[in-house]
Design a binder for these strands. Structure first.
Lengths: 175, 175
DNA sequence: ATATACTTGACTAAAATAGTAGGTTTTTGC
DNA sequence: GCAAAAACCTACTATTTTAGTCAAGTATAT
């Protein structure tokens, strides 16, 4: 288990989906604008999320991404695991031995620790997050702005980023 | 709170101190050999640990580092905090507002999450870790080897690393 | 005095993170 | 059928963080 900004990006994007994809697929382009995450980076992340069936995709015009399951069935740990690199358990994988047969020193400890952090994060679902009142309020105001943005596509991007609430940045400073 | 290899290195080194510095200071050079962490990287880490008074240093011949407090008073969270980069709370630092006065979206959630992970790690002390029986056993066999190493300093380093139990590597694959 | 060992700063190398660019499918609507 | 919208895919680049190296100090026990 590794906690870095990558996982936060992923959780933020999934949160955005959870809020905005209730009535149909949402494009990465929209998420990119709302959360100020680069489109291609989102593509990379969603490729991994799709492989774990955390999201489903619809191709073609009007397409986009939706949650792969109910938001109450998707937990934070799953999302972070999906986008984080391989767990890199090069040695002593659960066998309790390593380094020439000697007992694995702090192995059990860190396994415990890791397991407990994982368990903690796996008890928090997307729906837990979304159900916070303030989140929905701000999400609504973002949807309002998206309409304006779409109505006036020619507008410069600085304006969009300057006024749009930035889920990612909010998330970034806490974990 | 950020969980990366850096924090694991630091915790591993502190564990080594906790085990080996009971009767006097331990040099970074010894830790470097036992845990296969580069001396200079240890120097960087211990500089930060010293600033937080997690370790004390003794200069001159026979000097080295010791724990700054009882191992039962040093927790994992403190160690990770000490070596990890600034918490980077560029915005909405506890004020609950950001982005032009709008309510901070997922701020409270992640603050909670971070706080709970932190709390979890702060409940695990070095002495908790050291008290695991296997750890002490293997530590003793490491001390035996150190004697041999010191008795025959001219020996090549590959031999040392090849036979020495590598605390760091054991730790690395679990979190 | 002098060897030991901490201390500091500047520098380099490798890895992970983040972003760019350019394409190819697939699907919809005209 | 065709054009546009969107996912999908591959390769490349830039930035940041980690990790390690080097060299010149400073303090201190013997």
């Amino acid at each position: 288990m590794r906690l870095t900004t990558k996982g936060r990006y992923a959780v933020t994007a999934m949160l955005d989906l959870s809020i905005n994809a209730k009535k149909g697929p949402v494009t990465l382009s929209d998420i990119s604008k709302r959360q100020a995450i680069s489109l291609s980076y989102l593509e990379q992340l969603f490729s991994k999320l799709r492989k774990r069936d955390l999201v489903t995709s619809v191709r073609g015009p009007g397409g986009g991404y939706m949650l792969g399951r109910k938001d109450s069935d998707i937990d934070v740990a799953e999302i972070i695991d999906a986008v984080s690199e391989s767990l890199d358990s090069t040695q002593c994988k659960g066998k309790g031995d390593c380094h020439g047969g000697e007992i694995c020193l702090t192995h059990h400890l860190w396994e415990d620790l890791s397991a407990q952090i994982h368990k903690f994060l796996s008890n928090i679902t997307l729906s837990d997050l979304v159900s916070k009142r303030e989140i929905e309020q701000i999400a609504r105001s973002q949807q309002e702005r998206m309409k304006q943005i779409k109505a006036n596509e020619a507008q410069d991007q600085d304006g969009i980023q300057g006024t749009s609430v930035n889920l990612e940045r909010i998330v970034a400073n806490s974990l």
